[in-house]
Nucleic acid binder design. Sequence first.
RNA 1: GGCGGAGUAGCUCAGCGGUAGAGCAGCGGAAUCAUAAUCCGUAGGUCGGGGGUUCGAAUCCCUCCUCCGCUACCA
Length: 510
Amino acid sequence: MSAPETYYVTTPIYYVNDSPHIGHAYTTLACDVLARFMRLDGRRVRFLTGTDEHGQKVEKAAGEAGLDPQTFTDRVSRRFRELLEVMDFSADDFIRTTEPRHVRAVQALWRKLVERDQIYLGKYAGWYSVRDESYYAESDLVEGRAPTGAPVEWVEEPSYFFRLSAWQEPLLEFYERHPDFVLPQSRYNEVVSFVRGGLTDLSVSRTTFRWGIPVPDDPDHVIYVWLDALTNYISALGYPDTGSELYRRFWPADLHVIGKDILRFHAVYWPAFLLAAGIEPPRRVFAHGWWTNEGQKISKSLGNVIDPRVLVETYGRDQTRYFLLREVPFGQDGDFRHEAMVRRINHDLANDYGNLAQRVLSMIARNCDGRVPEPGPLAAEDRALLDHAHALLPALREAIGVQALHRALELIWELIGAANRYVDAQAPWALRKSDPGRMRTVLWTLAETIRHVAVLTRPFVPAASDRLLDQLAVPETDRVFAALGAGGRPLLPGTALPHPRGVFPRWQQE
RNA sequence: GGCGGAGUAGCUCAGCGGUAGAGCAGCGGAAUCAUAAUCCGUAGGUCGGGGGUUCGAAUCCCUCCUCCGCUACCA
């Protein structure tokens, strides 16, 4: 038996300057679904998230809170770790940039770059925005501020530079050879046109603050936060020990999921650093969009920040997960609206899905002695529904392969719709008297279809899916994709089923 | 200024050379197994404006308008 395929997916590490909000939850959610899907599909998965804890902003924020940076950072980092529980995220590792394993990796990468003559000592003079962690040319400034509106300060200091300019052509070749390195497509175009526009060497060290990883052999300098942060993707695999099991198995990463605001760092700087160090770049960077709140841009000053904790408490964990993934094509911006959320909960989850299960399981409970019915010969309509169910997994693989999470859900709901139509067309409640044998065949076909749906919704709405699988008495070991399809492990007639209970309650007007 | 994308039913969007589509909302009906949940029917919208190519254009070309993203520059 050959080794299972692997899958390495990451979130960005979240900056501890901020508490977790819907944006963080959204990114990690997407990764969680992908990780769960791949695990159920038999792949060996590594799902990484964590926190980015260095930099001037953190140093300042800690000072304002009257704490030393490490204490401050411990505190905020914990909140991000707690988000995993809140949203039911299945991360395999949580990395912090203040951990020794990470510091060691960053310094090793730095040394590697120096060794390969990719870093040189120069002098930096220019405008720097602490808030953006970014430099701006004089010409970028708008009324003395960064184009983002952030305040800037004049910085003049010795600095190490990374020879980014030397990587313009290699990067362009790399993009050309990997046309799906960046998704969505429009982001790929942006990246390519940015690099075509010319790259200048990148300042990669600071002497103006201390809270960071010291430059090896020159402790006056602290390593640029992005070089520091991006390295987490390999430090979590044990870099610089490239012979380690984790590293060999999982690098290069299959996917970095990010928000669109940090695309340049991931699609330009990161592959440039890696190419310069002789390390293979990741396979894909997917940049998703932003959420607005009831049509309004989300900002702290507006006070309309969405706390994932509140969403989960208000609407439910699976409901929140479903809404975020279904409401908006993954990659586009979305609008969070209470009304839309309620519609998704009641229509998609309670009515279409939950009620399908409930009506079928109730009929089985009442008319089949609470056991999986014994089907007779299958009619064409039965086969058609089962064929649809069996064909779903390959279709989902395709959608998931390009991170079309919304499309995957759409495909599943097409089967749910077909199953509801089938119930009405077959009218098993009428068959109860006219043809009980036929009724049992219909109910078995439906139960089997629901089994497929429940297994396939596990990555998206894990808890509810499992509650449904409990009701179908599907053993833990059969709740995987290998148990689906024509050669799978169908429900066994005669199996006793627990009393049916709804898995997706309707949202009640409060 | 440059590059890219978008403007299609009330809303969100798909279609991308061959007599205008989906979901949601709305309207009418059927059914009654079920969380009053389902199913069926119903969309008369100059496909942003104008011009062109074609037997035929949301669909190709030109042009204009509006919006969005990336990027550059002037000051």
